[in-house]
Structures are given as C-alpha cells and as structure tokens.
Simulated scan of single mutants.
Amino acid sequence: MKWKAKASIALLLCSSVTAAGFMLFSGDDSGLAKVHDGIESQFTEVSHIDGDGLSALNQENTILFDVREAPEFSVSHLKGAIHVDPGMSEQDFIQQYADLSKGKTAIFYCSVGQRSSDLANRVQKALISSGAKAAYNLEGGIFKWHNESRPLFTKGTERTSYVHPYNPIWGRLVKDQENTRY
C-alpha cells in the first residue's frame, strides 16, 4: 500500500510542471491546494478541515495528532499536538490513543497532508467506534498553517516561527523560507 502512496506523490511531482517550466512548489498556497486535491482524490473516505475550522473547534474537545518524524515535530508543531509515528499500525494507534480520543474530535496533520491522511484513513473507523466524535485531516498540513501565520510551538508552550520543510523540494511550499529549520 505504501508504494501506491509514494507512486502517487512521484506522479504528482512529475506532472506538476507548468507550461512556463516552473514547478507548482512556488511557496504560495496554489501549490498546496493542488497537492491537497491529489490527497483528497487518493483518500476519498477521509474528511478534511481547514485552519479556520480547526481554530473554531473547542480545544478541550479536540485532540491533535502530528504525523511527522520526530525531528520535524521538534522544530515546531500545533499547540498540544501528540507526536505519532507515520508508520504506526492501526492496532497500536487504537491501543495507545482510543481512550484519549473518547468524546473528542481527532485532527491529524503532517507537512502537507499525505502522511496524516494515510494514518487517518487507516484508523478513523476504529477510532470513532472507540468513542471519538469525528476524525479529520488538516487541509494543507502544517505548511498551510504556517503560511497563514497561525501559531506554532516547540517544547511545550514556547512559541516559534519556524517550520521543518520536510525536504528541499516539499519545503518550497512554505512561503517564508527564512523560517524553515531542519
């Protein structure tokens, strides 16, 4: 299954060249929107929520899952997010987080939404069966959140303006290149 996701990303990268010869990775949200469209078509059973929708939710009834690698999470994350290994099995996820999610809306995010949509797709039915209200993927991931100048945190409640760019190619979707850190 993972090879299909990687093949989809590779196809998206190869097909993202415009007539002018520039890649969609231009640091504006049109590139993120195109990536998100591809994610939505790949994960048709996953619901998505944008930054405004997430901000409007009651924080006490929301649980955030950051589905990135540990070095990405250590640079910055959304306030109160729980770091989750992107390759975590459905069984391990439910065993560790079902009780914490009871009565809450679960939000999954990663850099752009690929890894988080994959995990949400694998665990959402079991999570909701275990008592979660709903499960969503954050549209555009932490990159869009950062591009919209929304708050990011590191080490508890310490605010930061930095975001991990994942790699030099995907990092081009971040508008403020001065605030990327590996």
Rank of each mutant, 00 (worst) to 15 (best):
A33P: 00
A33N: 08
A33M: 08
K34E: 09
K34H: 09
V35G: 13
V35R: 03
H36S: 15
D37M: 11
G38D: 07
G38V: 04
E40A: 10
F43D: 01
F43W: 02
T44C: 09
T44L: 13
E45P: 00
E45L: 10
V46G: 01
V46W: 12
V46D: 04
H48K: 11
I49R: 01
D50I: 07
D50G: 04
G51A: 15
G51H: 09
G53K: 11
L54R: 00
L54H: 01
S55H: 07
S55L: 13
N58W: 04
Q59W: 01
E60T: 15
E60S: 15
T62V: 07
I63A: 01
F65T: 05
D66K: 00
R68M: 14
R68F: 01
R68T: 13
E69D: 12
E69C: 00
E69R: 05
E72K: 01
S74E: 15
S74F: 04
V75A: 07
S76M: 09
S76V: 08
L78W: 06
K79M: 08
K79H: 09
I82T: 14
H83Q: 15
G87S: 14
G87D: 15
S89W: 05
S89A: 09
E90H: 06
Q91H: 06
F93G: 01
I94D: 08
Q95K: 14
Q95S: 15
Q95I: 03
Q96E: 13
A98D: 09
D99R: 08
D99C: 00
D99G: 02
D99F: 03
D99L: 11
L100V: 03
L100Y: 05
S101H: 10
K102V: 14
K102D: 08
K102C: 07
K104L: 10
A106I: 10
A106L: 11
I107D: 03
I107L: 11
F108C: 06
F108I: 04
Y109G: 11
Y109C: 13
Y109D: 06
Y109H: 15
C110K: 06
S111L: 07
Q114E: 06
R115P: 02
S116W: 05
S116C: 12
S116T: 03
D118H: 13
D118Y: 14
D118T: 14
L119N: 07
L119F: 11
A120W: 00
A120T: 04
A120E: 06
N121H: 15
N121Y: 14
R122K: 15
V123F: 11
V123P: 08
I128N: 04
S130V: 04
S130H: 10
A132R: 02
